[in-house]
Nucleic acid binder design. Structure first.
Lengths: 201, 201
DNA sequence: CTCCTTCCCTAACAAGTGTTTGGTAGGTTA
DNA sequence: TAACCTACCAAACACTTGTTAGGGAAGGAG
């Protein structure tokens, strides 16, 4: 027999890809099995249910994301540096877990209502607090504009970052860091040209 | 009998709400019928199929959107004014057809591959061209920054606008025009405070 | 060799799916 | 009144869904 305990991970990655491409509900277990090279019933040797696969995908993604976020937040940087670090980590996460992020984007809103996926709501609250605090710190410190609705700004920043998962493909011409740099530049400085605006050297 | 030829529209609006909330595939015709106050089979007096309902919802949305976009583009404004007008019209469209926009956001990527929904790909190409042309005009005219990847900027602007459909609720404290103003301010000027930055009067 | 574990297949299950068919209450038209 | 149309219901259809049970091939351990 092959040594394969990573067969499980292999199947889970396949499932994540299919979920991301077709949507969770539209994906049949037979389709996953097909893509992974086995039959539908055999999936249940590795996993309890289709829902368990989804659960495991989302948990792994959120665990890794929060490990990085917590590291950033624990460093207690200035508000602008915190924002830059959070955005950069987000793009790195998209680079690593593209499928999981796409699934999260598409499904979390209605999954959140199921008890089993209640942790999605909890994660979202922590997420929102971390961002709001950072923005408010920045406003107080005079590095962010004071004339904007903070909550609107939060949604703006949050969305601009995460929807990138819907078009980003790893191995493209831009690295996650490069995309993060340009996104940050747009979010912080705007796309309009103005007097004294510096171009890259 | 009631006068109702608008019963059809009523059912379609209900279907759009349910599709937007639960996802198209996760929505059963019985659920739609329930919400509309009739039985599943009775839906087929008004519509050919579940897919037809989705098709009609998306077509109505795109038709109206393009009518407004074409009016803006035909006016041949300056690039910055064009961008502002397109964004404002987009938020107005979200205000009017919130459910349809949410469905479009969630489902268009994979629907696009079905022949029946091929027009989604066509619409997306026109959409991309209109935006890219406007941005390139702006770069050439010196009103937009020259150091950004135009395609990245396009996705940035596009996404920031349309994901708003996932959280926007009509009748909230901000009108579509107010949201558009703040979004445009963030996209054009950035969220960072800088010397000489003016707050609202 | 024999036993055991790992990993998968075959075949079926009940529940739920979109859809069709035939019928009918009640208003409109002639 | 009679014929007709609109908008719906009741019941069933064929099919797909996620899931389960039993079995078996292939390798490692004794």
């Amino acid at each position: 027999m092959r040594p394969a305990p990573e067969r499980r991970r292999e199947i889970l990655d396949t499932a994540a890809e299919v979920f991301a491409a077709q949507g969770y509900d539209a994906t049949t277990v037979r389709r996953i099995a097909d893509a992974a090279g086995l039959l539908a019933g055999s999936l249940y040797y590795h996993f309890d249910s289709k829902e368990s696969m989804l659960d495991e995908i989302l948990r792994a993604f959120l665990d890794e994301l929060w490990a990085r976020y917590d590291a950033v937040l624990a460093a207690v940087l200035g508000p602008r540096e915190t924002l830059e670090a959070l955005v950069t980590e987000s793009f790195r996460e998209i680079d690593r877990h593209r499928a999981a992020v796409a699934i999260y984007q598409k499904e979390s809103r209605h999954l959140r209502e199921q008890p089993r996926f209640g942790y999605l709501a909890g994660s979202q609250r922590r997420f929102e607090q971390a961002w709001l605090r950072t923005l408010e710190r920045g406003v107080a410190a005079g590095v962010f504009r004071t004339d904007l609705d903070v909550r609107l700004t939060y949604r703006f920043v949050r969305d601009t970052v995460w929807v990138a998962a819907s078009w980003y493909r790893p191995g493209g011409q831009h690295s996650p860091e490069e995309i993060a740099r340009q996104y940050l530049s747009m979010v912080l400085e705007g796309v309009a040209l103005r007097d004294g605006h510096r171009t890259y050297d």
